[in-house]
């Protein structure tokens, strides 16, 4: 496959940045999208140019590091995959592919396609945990009976890898699918109950302080989420928040 790539290039956080056109040839349809970018970078290095910076780590859809807004969609046109799991067979020979960083005020660009998603870490630090005494007499979590339906929903919420596709896809740059998943994961389990009120209030407060937008329920996040996190998690977070806020 021969492709034209329109890629966002930005030297550093303070650079204005611009779209730059590149051509790559002999791309195998079996390559992953990141492998295709590796080919481009080899080419750029050979030409003495700066390679395109992009985030990646596990390259098997688990770590949540890879991002990229490809042809107007987070993680590209395929469903239920991260960019590292996106294959070039999703594109046609001769295609022009637009590649941009995830855009949100809360996700500032560091360089080229790399954005700073530490806002998610700060939201997690605000309450995305349970406090457990680990002094040696910890009770095994499996010893506590949990309704099967709740356990399944909690597990589904816990599959969120925090990649930020929800924020990137949302027209309002809202992080509510991410925060909803993190709140739900604990709200559904007995271990999460003790800190439930503080958790949701603190995480939502931090989310707002980071400058994420307000959810208007377009559902774009759910469609683009590589892990299929459901909008039900946002509704659950809303319930948890309202319960906590009215409780005081």
């Amino acid at each position: 496959m021969n492709l034209t790539l329109k890629i966002w290039r930005q030297k550093n956080a303070s650079d204005k940045g611009k779209m730059v056109d590149y051509s790559v040839s002999d791309i195998s349809p079996d390559m992953s999208f990141l492998e295709m970018l590796d080919v481009l970078n080899e080419q750029l290095i050979e030409q003495g140019e700066q390679p395109v910076a992009f985030d990646h780590d596990c390259r098997e859809g688990i770590c949540g590091m890879c991002s990229l807004y490809i042809n107007g969609e987070a993680h590209g046109p395929d469903r239920g995959v991260t960019t590292c799991q996106l294959h070039m067979r999703m594109f046609k020979d001769g295609d022009t592919i637009t590649i941009e960083p995830f855009r949100a005020t809360a996700f500032p660009v560091i360089k080229d396609l790399v954005v700073d998603r530490s806002a998610f870490d700060r939201v997690q630090h605000a309450g995305g945990f349970i406090s457990v005494n680990t002094s040696g007499n910890t009770i095994d979590a499996n010893a506590i009976p949990v309704n099967k339906h709740d356990a399944d929903d909690a597990f589904a919420a816990a599959t969120c890898i925090g990649c930020g596709a929800c924020v990137a896809s949302c027209k309002n740059s809202s992080a509510m699918l991410f925060v909803g998943a993190k709140v739900s994961q604990f709200a559904l389990l007995p271990q999460g109950q003790v800190e439930a009120t503080d958790r949701v209030l603190n995480m939502v407060k931090q989310m707002d302080e980071e400058g994420f937008g307000n959810c208007t329920n377009t559902g774009a996040c759910e469609v683009e989420c590589p892990k299929g996190i459901s909008l039900e998690n946002i509704a659950r977070m809303n319930r948890e928040y309202l319960k906590a806020a009215f409780k005081g």
């Binding site: 966002w8 807004y69 107007g72 969609e73 046109p77 941009e100 027209k171 377009t218 774009a220 469609v223």
Partner: peptide, 11 residues
């Protein structure tokens, strides 16, 4: 975004 395909994921 330079290119945004909103129709792909929302009404």
């Amino acid at each position: 975004y330079a290119k945004n395909n909103g129709a792909a994921n929302s009404s």
